[in-house]
């Protein structure tokens, strides 16, 4: 049995793995940060936001001295499972740490 956790993540109760909800690819042990099973890349902010006004100190693009955009992809299908906006070099976040024993107890084994 798989339990849906977010738009793109499930936990397989039998294997106790994080899985991609779109393609079923097993990412990593569900007791770990799911990001350890993802492909990770920094995406240039100018690929997301309009470069207006150009050449000025202020604009619609965040300042890369203050902020970078990190994307996490499913290695199976390439869907973007999540992203993070972090100051350069700031450790990536272990944002979801489920109590897997409690989850198994709640839903029962598959």
């Amino acid at each position: 049995m798989k339990v849906r956790i977010t738009e793109y993540l499930e936990v397989d109760l039998e294997s106790q793995k994080w899985c991609c909800q779109r393609c079923g690819h097993e990412l990593v042990d569900a007791r770990q940060n799911y990001k350890k099973g993802c492909l990770v890349a920094e995406k240039p902010l100018e690929e997301v936001y309009p470069p207006k006004p150009e050449g000025q100190a202020y604009g619609f693009i965040p300042d890369p001295d203050f902020c970078r955009l990190i994307e996490f992809y499913c290695p199976g299908c390439g869907v973007m499972i999540e992203n993070e906006y972090l100051p350069p070099g700031h450790p990536l976040t272990h944002e979801i740490e489920l109590d897997i024993d409690s989850l198994i107890e709640r839903y029962g084994r598959a």
Partner: peptide, 15 residues
């Protein structure tokens, strides 16, 4: 989607 898979690297390598 393919370009993402080519560009992305495992977390430890990225870090």
């Amino acid at each position: 989607f393919q370009e993402r898979k080519a560009r992305g690297v495992p977390l430890e390598q990225f870090e």
